[in-house]
Amino acid sequence: MKKIGYTTGVFDMFHVGHLNIFRRAKLECDYLVVGVTTDELSIKTKNKKPIIPLNERIEIVNAIKFVDEVVTQEDYDKMKAWNTIKFDIMFVGDDWKKTEKWNNLEQKFSEVGVEIMYFPYTTNTSSTILRQVLTSIHDVI
């Protein structure tokens, strides 16, 4: 039986941390589905408009050899996503581990047989750091 994995993110300014998530996730499943967050959801929840438009972020993620399918993430309801995709394992950064939100999700997912696997957060490069660098350069120019 095919093991389906799922992970999500904005994946703005694609970098090696994003690639590492996909690479590691693919080692744990047979079929990897990646949810790319819409611009609207990012603005609404993070108050950040992605620099790279959604259609381009989807194209980039879709081109990665570890990714089997790309879907848009239009809300953060992971159980709703599970009802649609029926994944067996979800991959998320370890910066969420032991938070109330993810403790609750772990409980809900365990009831339907879904495992959550936490990966180490990339510290050297992140979209937040890249955004800060671009902003500082823009302010200087």
Score class of each variant (00 low, 15 high):
3 K>N: 04
4 I>E: 04
5 G>M: 07
12 D>H: 12
13 M>G: 02
17 G>D: 03
18 H>I: 04
19 L>C: 03
19 L>E: 06
20 N>P: 04
20 N>R: 13
20 N>A: 12
22 F>I: 02
22 F>L: 12
23 R>H: 12
23 R>F: 15
24 R>V: 09
24 R>T: 04
25 A>F: 10
28 E>F: 07
29 C>W: 00
30 D>E: 04
30 D>F: 12
31 Y>N: 03
34 V>E: 00
34 V>M: 03
34 V>S: 03
36 V>G: 00
37 T>S: 08
38 T>Q: 06
38 T>D: 02
41 L>Q: 05
41 L>M: 09
41 L>H: 03
41 L>G: 03
42 S>D: 06
42 S>R: 11
42 S>M: 09
44 K>S: 11
56 E>N: 07
58 I>M: 02
59 E>G: 10
59 E>S: 11
62 N>H: 08
62 N>G: 09
63 A>G: 15
67 V>H: 00
67 V>K: 00
68 D>E: 14
70 V>R: 00
71 V>Q: 01
72 T>N: 00
72 T>A: 01
73 Q>N: 15
74 E>Y: 09
74 E>A: 06
77 D>K: 09
79 M>W: 05
82 W>V: 11
83 N>G: 14
84 T>R: 14
85 I>D: 04
86 K>R: 15
86 K>I: 10
89 I>C: 09
89 I>H: 03
90 M>P: 03
91 F>E: 00
92 V>C: 08
92 V>K: 13
94 D>M: 07
94 D>I: 03
95 D>G: 05
96 W>D: 04
100 E>L: 10
102 W>F: 13
106 E>G: 01
107 Q>P: 00
109 F>Q: 10
109 F>V: 06
109 F>P: 00
110 S>E: 12
110 S>L: 05
110 S>G: 01
111 E>F: 03
112 V>K: 08
112 V>F: 05
112 V>D: 00
116 I>S: 05
118 Y>V: 03
120 P>S: 06
120 P>M: 11
123 T>Y: 07
125 T>K: 06
125 T>L: 15
125 T>G: 13
126 S>F: 11
126 S>N: 09
128 T>A: 15
130 L>K: 06
130 L>Q: 14
130 L>I: 15
131 R>E: 08
132 Q>C: 08
133 V>C: 07
136 S>C: 12
136 S>R: 13
138 H>I: 11
138 H>S: 13
140 V>I: 14
140 V>H: 14
141 I>Y: 15
